[in-house]
Design a protein around this nucleic acid. Structure first.
Lengths: 112, 112
DNA sequence: CGGCATACCTTGACAGCTTAGGTATTAGCG
DNA sequence: CGCTAATACCTAAGCTGTCAAGGTATGCCG
């Protein structure tokens, strides 16, 4: 956690998952890979963070899941955005932008 | 915590504090106010997060503290950056930029 | 005198990430 | 044929950090 040691800042995983699903359903393992690949591994999502997050988000009604088969014909659980999830994606994206912009501006102030 | 409810993303407080001190020593209360004011209250630092953070960072050798008096002639603990703290500021700033850029890019991909 | 701002602190609850395991299936290789 | 690696899922323990909610003390101002 944190900028000091960890690899993922606590609280940003959800919006990344939501975004990963905005093109349509994906299975958990694939979501993790998508995030890693699309950030040049700057963001490395641990499985121990990913799966609990998926369950959490489904419990909150942001995601819907069903079992299916991958292109490799392997058993996998596919997650899709619910209406609530889509709303969350929009809100949290906005919040991320305002938050990150605020932090970045602070950090850009030239110091002594 | 998180983008959903909280006001501060876990792990970003440290770098904000370090930055606040990059112009010279400040007391804790003033650090909190500086962050709030300079972000139009987008980032509202709770005291219950701030003071433990200061103690933590001092324990890690990033900060040095001494008691003094404010402009209002009130007793207050002033914190200043140590050499280690300055290094931390540089590192964490870099890390923040790469992290936030990665997230922002992901979120900007246009979806279906 | 009472309230508000300044300035510090701590505790308990809780969320979320990391580490470190675990299972099962399939593909590829020697 | 057996081994390893990749795919795909899951969980538990431990830790860190934030929030909510308290608390102390001082000084100013109406």
């Amino acid at each position: 956690m944190s900028l000091s040691d960890g690899v993922l800042i606590a609280g940003t995983l959800d919006v990344l998952v939501l975004k990963a699903l905005s093109w349509g359903p994906r299975h958990g393992y694939g979501i993790g890979r998508w995030i890693n690949e699309n950030t040049d591994a700057v963001l490395a999502v641990e499985e121990g963070a990913l799966y609990p997050a998926l369950h959490r988000m489904e419990r909150r009604g942001w995601l819907e899941s069903r079992w299916g088969r991958t292109e490799l014909d392997r058993r996998a659980k596919f997650y899709g955005l619910s209406r609530k999830g889509r709303r969350q994606l929009a809100e949290q994206t906005k919040r991320w932008h305002s938050y990150s912009q605020a932090v970045s501006l602070l950090l850009q102030k030239r110091s002594a």
